[in-house]
Computed example of a mutant assay.
Amino acid sequence: MSEVRWWPETQGDVFGHRIRELWTEQLGRRLDILIAGCGRGDRVAIERVDIRVTGIDEDIPVLRAAVGRRVDLDARFVGDLRDAPLLPRTFDVVHAAFLLERLRNAELVLDRLVNALRPGGLLLIRMRDRTSAYGFCDRVTPWWLRRLLWKRFAPPEAVGPLPAIYEQVASREGIHSYCLMRGLMIAEDYSGSSGPALRGRHPRLARAALRVVEHLSGQRLPAGRDEITLVIRKPQNHFARLI
């Protein structure tokens, strides 16, 4: 694994900078970008870069509607991500924002995303941390209560509520172990705070609840860091494990 750049929280437009660097490395060749989990509406800021963007997401009504509203996608797929039509070594960049924590068989889907990356390509991940106070509350709250709280706490423009599965890979330890086993290089690792309830109608109440969870957990579930942001590179080295 390469030396990892650690930061306490996300510093600016990390993903956009890395995509521009990759475009420069490729001498201005068009970049093929896959947005996995495109139903949430996350976009990568990549002005003045020649790109072709494909979006995929699960077939959930609220996500299907959101995908249909996007005008920045050149191609799209909505369905079971374990069966998404992803050919090997097709994309230069895979951008997966807040996807892994809402999937079952998340490692299987992640394997398919990595397989779709060209050697030297970038895997850009943002995810909610299952070992944070926010992640804990999200995954243990019953679905009916999550739907009720979403209407009262989430920002009006947020897409959801979405499934909260949080398999082990949706944690810093889990994703680092995954990358080690697959021969992937983590170049940058950031922590941040971006939970919908913290940006919604009652952020102070949400933060107070998270501090209570942090205290009751003996500080094992931090209240101030719920997001993990990773820049991961698929190696060019042919001796690395092929996925």
Rank of each mutant, 00 (worst) to 15 (best):
E58H: 05
D59S: 14
D59W: 05
I60D: 08
I60H: 14
P61R: 05
P61V: 02
V62S: 15
L63E: 11
L63W: 10
L63I: 15
R64Q: 14
R64T: 14
A65G: 11
A65P: 10
V67G: 00
V67P: 02
V67W: 03
G68N: 14
R70W: 08
R70L: 11
L73M: 09
L73Y: 07
L73G: 05
L73I: 10
L73V: 13
L73P: 09
L73C: 10
D74V: 01
D74Y: 00
D74L: 01
D74K: 00
A75P: 00
A75H: 03
A75I: 03
A75G: 06
R76W: 01
R76V: 06
R76A: 13
F77G: 02
F77W: 08
F77A: 01
V78I: 12
G79M: 01
G79R: 05
D80K: 00
L81Y: 01
D83E: 08
P85E: 07
P85V: 07
L86R: 07
L86H: 09
L86W: 10
P88Q: 00
P88Y: 03
P88R: 04
R89P: 02
R89M: 11
F91A: 04
F91V: 08
F91T: 06
F91D: 04
D92L: 08
D92I: 05
